[in-house]
Structure formats: structure tokens, C-alpha cells
């Protein structure tokens, strides 16, 4: 198995990484950078969204990105959402809405929400449900998650 060197930006930091090439971004984040916010739940099928991160601002499943594919790109994980690790308004909305139970899906949900609100600051409920349809949750039934996104949209709108 061959190695390669990848240059990318990870949570605003420039990274030069020499690694075995046939690894997913998810494995690299979790194993090499100890960024364990992105989770594996479906086993790399792209069916659960628990490993959602932003790649050049777009929500993607980190399990379906090969590390070579991030060359020259910007990777944002849940750990980089705020510079000081304080609560981002989206995270705060999830907390306040009671949208977090076991929390395993939460980092992926929050990142999918971030991508949605970056592109569509005031989504309607259908747009929210569509944007989160790739993120499975087994605890909440999604109601409070949708409410959290609505809170966050309002909050971010007021801030701007």
C-alpha cells in the first residue's frame, strides 16, 4: 500500500500529512488528529451522517472521502466550529431545544445544520428536514432537532 503527502487546512490550521494513501478522512481525523467528534455508525456506507464534516463548506460524510481527495481543501470538523471551543449558536440551539439525548449523532447533525444555514440562512421546515435526511437519529424522533435548527436560524439571523 502506497504512501503520499497531503496538504490541507484542518480547522483553520495548515496541515502537511504523510500517510498511507488508502485511508478515509474519517480514520485520519480520529486516529491521527484525535478529533473524535465525527463518529462512525453505519460502517462506512454513507448511510448515517454521524461523520459529517464540512469540506470546502459543503457537508460530506468523512467516511466516503479518501485522504488524497482533501489535497488543497478546507476541512472543518465539529472541534473547529468555534475558535475557542465555546458554544456556537447552532450548538447552543441544540442544547437549549433538548435536541440531544445520547448525543452520538449530534456532531454530525450540527455540522449538517451549519452547512444548511450557511447556504440557506432562513430555511423552512421542509428544507431543514431535507438537509438533515442523511443524518440518522434513533433517540429523538427529529422533532427537537428540527426545532433546534429553527432556533439557530433565528439566533444567527439576529446576530447579523
Amino acid at each position: 500500500m502506497n504512501k503520499l503527502t497531503v496538504h490541507f487546512t484542518l480547522n483553520q490550521q495548515s496541515i502537511r500529512l504523510e500517510t498511507l494513501a488508502a485511508r478515509s478522512l474519517l480514520d485520519v481525523l480520529r486516529e491521527d488528529f484525535a478529533l473524535t467528534g465525527a463518529k462512525d455508525s453505519c460502517g462506512g456506507d454513507g448511510e448515517c451522517g454521524a461523520c459529517t464534516i464540512l469540506l470546502d463548506g459543503e457537508a460530506v460524510n468523512a467516511c466516503l472521502v479518501l485522504i488524497s481527495q482533501v489535497e488543497g481543501r478546507h476541512v472543518l470538523t465539529i472541534e473547529g466550529l468555534t475558535p475557542d471551543g465555546s458554544l456556537h449558536p447552532i450548538q447552543n440551539a441544540y442544547v437549549q431545544a433538548g435536541a440531544i439525548q445520547c448525543g452520538y449523532c449530534t456532531p454530525g447533525m450540527v455540522m449538517a445544520t451549519k452547512a444548511l444555514l450557511d447556504h440557506t440562512p432562513q430555511p423552512d421546515e421542509t428544507q431543514i428536514r431535507e438537509a438533515l435526511a442523511g443524518n440518522l437519529c434513533r433517540c429523538t424522533g427529529y422533532t427537537k432537532i428540527v426545532q433546534a435548527v429553527q432556533f439557530a436560524a433565528t439566533e444567527l439571523h439576529h446576530d447579523n
Binding site: R30, T36, A38, K39, I78, L87, I100, G103, T106, P107
Partner: peptide, 15 residues
């Protein structure tokens, strides 16, 4: 534990 989970800092056993 909500904020801990929302920020991805919560460590599950696999983490």
C-alpha cells in the same frame, strides 16, 4: 452533558 456532546468533546468508548 448536552454542551459536551454538542461540541464533540464527549468521548464514547470507541473514542
Amino acid at each position: 452533558d448536552a454542551a459536551f456532546k454538542a461540541t464533540g468533546k464527549a468521548q464514547y468508548t470507541a473514542d
